[in-house]
Simulated scan of single mutants.
Amino acid sequence: MPRAGLTVERVTIAGAELADEAGFDQVTMSQVARRLGVKDASLYSHVRNLQELRGRIALLAADEKTIRIAEAVAGRAGRDALVAYANAWRGYAHEHPGRYLATQTPVPIDPDLAADAPGPRRAIELTYGMLRGYGLAEPDLTDAVRLLRSTFHGFVALEAANGFGHSRSTQESWGRSLEALHVLLEQWPTSDRGDHP
């Protein structure tokens, strides 16, 4: 029987908090149970296993990150939307490093859970909508999405690992990187070919 007061939402949030504090790869059923002050067995009334818990953390984080980005870009277009989008992405990664990593880690997720989660689907809509403001269409849209994701994730991952050794401010480099992306998106090299080398 489920423990009174313990819900799947509380278990998921406890796991997400643990991910931020210790790292997403350190989330275990035992650690989450300890955090909640219950026995490991109590958790299994709410989540089937660690895989489901990590999937739920990933979906929670995707929802949170998407809401933050949506609020940031509302009413903006072009460069302003790009900068707001990127800063919201980076801000979430800084504030919730474990949850953020969950959104970037391939985690097997129950299709029924994924179907009910608006975050990932809304994130795609937001990204494609912002890029259409630059006049992009397929296949350039997909290529641009991959470029932005690679740039944003690469930057915040290097920041998290203290991978920037130069004395120049990372904030200055971030700002210049966004300016460069804006220029590139405005002058995107279009191609009639659907297959790129």
Rank of each mutant, 00 (worst) to 15 (best):
P2A: 15
R3M: 12
R3E: 11
G5T: 06
G5S: 08
G5P: 10
E9L: 03
R10T: 13
T12F: 10
A14W: 11
A14T: 11
A14V: 07
A16H: 10
E17G: 11
A19E: 04
D20S: 01
G23F: 12
F24N: 09
D25E: 11
D25F: 03
V27L: 05
V27Y: 05
T28L: 09
S30M: 08
Q31T: 05
Q31N: 06
R35M: 09
V38G: 00
V38K: 00
K39S: 08
A41I: 09
S42V: 14
L43Y: 01
L50M: 08
L50C: 04
L50E: 12
E52T: 12
L53C: 10
L53H: 13
G55K: 10
I57D: 13
I57H: 09
I57R: 09
A58R: 08
L59H: 02
L60D: 08
A62S: 15
I69K: 04
A72N: 08
A72M: 10
A74I: 02
G75K: 04
R76V: 01
A77M: 03
G78K: 05
Y85F: 15
Y85M: 07
Y85A: 01
A86W: 00
A86H: 00
W89I: 04
R90N: 07
G91D: 14
G91V: 12
E95I: 01
H96I: 05
P97G: 04
P97S: 09
Y100S: 07
A102S: 15
A102Y: 06
T103W: 00
P106G: 06
V107G: 05
P108G: 12
D110Q: 04
D110R: 13
A117E: 10
A117M: 10
P120D: 07
T127A: 02
Y128D: 12
G133Y: 00
G133M: 00
Y134A: 02
L136C: 02
P139H: 02
D143E: 14
D143L: 12
A144I: 02
V145L: 01
R149E: 11
T151P: 01
F152H: 14
H153R: 09
A157S: 14
A157P: 00
A160C: 03
A160F: 07
G163C: 04
G165D: 11
S167R: 13
R168S: 11
S169D: 15
S169K: 08
S169A: 13
T170F: 07
V183R: 14
V183K: 09
E186S: 12
T190F: 13
G194V: 01
D195Y: 11
